[in-house]
Nucleic acid binder design. Structure first.
Lengths: 192, 192
DNA sequence: ATATTCCTAGAACGACCGTACAAGAAATGA
DNA sequence: TCATTTCTTGTACGGTCGTTCTAGGAATAT
């Protein structure tokens, strides 16, 4: 009843490196051999730690979600109103230093829409997590229907604008539109 | 100096069928053999008409863009104001009967963001075409800066809401948010 | 020391991939 | 009819894919 203990840190390190690889090389080019080569290990090592390729993708997705959502929800969580939360989220998501990660985010998103069975958890959380966060930001006094409606609109607008910025790189135009939207949120608070 | 004449219709028919296959089976599963099998031809026939696989993807993309953008821009073109155009576009894009095509649209979109070299034309037009259409809808009297800003916002919001609807299938919530957005456009016209 | 378990690696399997080649059938103008 | 070009097919090649098997070193408890 002994044996070498499981090295959880090793798996975590490999996963982090795999996510880095995915961010840099794209979601469509994730196969055992290239990833293993970039990480300096054998494909068998990856198989040992992650099981099947599908399980590795799942692990990468989860880690990616941690990176992106956690970073933005932190910013939104400790702000009083919806407008401030929305502005904080937009500031973080539109940061060019995060563009590679969000490109991967939308690549996964698009693929998930065509293979919902394989990406069930991603699809269930990609909207719900943000919804919860943005509904909370509106406080307990806001009418639930209004809170839901507004949160839906904020998520959609931010993601649409982010898509535009990643596509065209036209930062000035997109930021201008975002500013208009955020100003509307601040000057005409919903539900009042 | 004779020979059998080139049958352009044949290529067009194959392309239409290929787009249908892509809509149904997803963008990631497009390889010669399955497509050829579904179309009842040999892989060599597809190669003959489309050249390389990359060229076939390009052809499919172009045809898909014709289907989606043309259908929606028709609706937007002959309406007087931006609000009416936006409502017409949203009505068409949020139609559940088109959900499969828009799933493919976002799958291609996400993939293009990670392989910009391969999908240059798609990325250049996916925003610009709609921008032009929505700026025109605002008429020549609208301040250009305002028109651009508003068009950017409308595109982003509609695409974000569409993403939400395709993800969650929560039609009531998304339509409710869309109605709020469209009502705002109608009651508070920008640039006035 | 020994048994046990984990970690890693290399080789090999069958399957699928994109593509090229050879060859026959079909459709045209001369 | 005949030469020419297009259309279609079957076959085959090299390559990559995910996965499995085998086996040897590394780290632990007894």
């Amino acid at each position: 009843m002994a044996g070498r203990p499981v090295n959880h840190q090793r798996r975590a390190d490999l996963l982090d490196a795999a996510v880095d690889y995915a961010v840099e090389h794209g979601f469509a080019e994730l196969s055992w051999r290239p990833v293993a080569g970039a990480l300096g290990v054998s494909t068998t090592t990856l198989v040992h730690h992650f099981g099947t390729k599908e399980q590795m993708l799942e692990a990468i997705l989860g880690r990616l979600r941690e990176r992106t959502f956690a970073a933005t929800s932190d910013a939104a969580g400790d702000r009083p109103g919806l407008a401030a939360a929305a502005r904080a989220v937009w500031t973080r998501t539109s940061d060019p230093r995060q563009s590679a990660e969000f490109r991967l985010f939308f690549a996964v998103y698009g693929r998930a829409l065509q293979a919902p069975r394989q990406f069930t958890e991603f699809l269930e959380r990609v909207v719900a997590d943000w919804m919860r966060s943005l509904v909370e930001a509106q406080g307990p006094d806001t009418d639930p229907a209004t809170a839901t409606r507004t949160a839906t609109l904020v998520i959609a607008t931010i993601r649409g604008l982010l898509l535009d910025q990643l596509t065209t790189g036209d930062r000035d135009r997109v930021q201008d539109a975002a500013e208009t939207f955020l100003a509307t949120l601040e000057h005409n608070p919903p539900g009042t």
